[in-house]
Design a protein around this nucleic acid. Structure first.
Length: 114
DNA sequence: CAATTGACTCGGT
DNA sequence: CACCGAGCCAATT
């Protein structure tokens, strides 16, 4: 079926919405899962629109090294970090501690491309 | 309509 | 190890 009927942004919203609590993922991971590994920027842009989507935990999406590059887009200056810490994730200097331990891989969790 | 920017990532020098 | 360029695609100016 045509999962590709949906727009790229729409898919990003779906995957982001599926991120479990206490987990995080990267823009590139989502982009790659959608078949656009080099379009990580688009994921970020999508997240910008996701800011209006309460079901889309954009704060759980960070760059590939676990750095909160998008924290400036949230209200205040440390809201993103507070949200992550609230879920049991440790963040120091805008960077997630044990990032790979909290990393949520859509390929692994969603089953990935057959 | 053209140029610039942007919540990224990879690779080369 | 640090810096720079290329690729991706969309929104804003």
């Amino acid at each position: 079926m045509n999962s590709d009927n949906k727009n790229f942004f729409q898919k990003v919203y779906e995957v982001a919405r599926l991120i479990p609590e206490g987990r995080v993922t990267s823009y590139g991971a989502i982009a790659k899962y959608l078949g656009a590994a080099r379009s990580a920027r688009m994921v970020g842009w999508a997240m910008n629109g996701a800011g209006s989507m309460p079901e889309i935990p954009a704060h759980r999406v960070v760059n590939k090294i676990g750095l909160l590059t998008g924290k400036h887009h949230f209200d205040g200056t440390n809201l993103m970090q507070q949200l992550l810490e609230n879920e049991g994730i440790t963040v120091v200097d805008n960077q997630i501690i044990d990032f790979e331990k909290h990393f949520w891989d859509p390929f692994k969790e969603l089953g990935g491309p057959a």
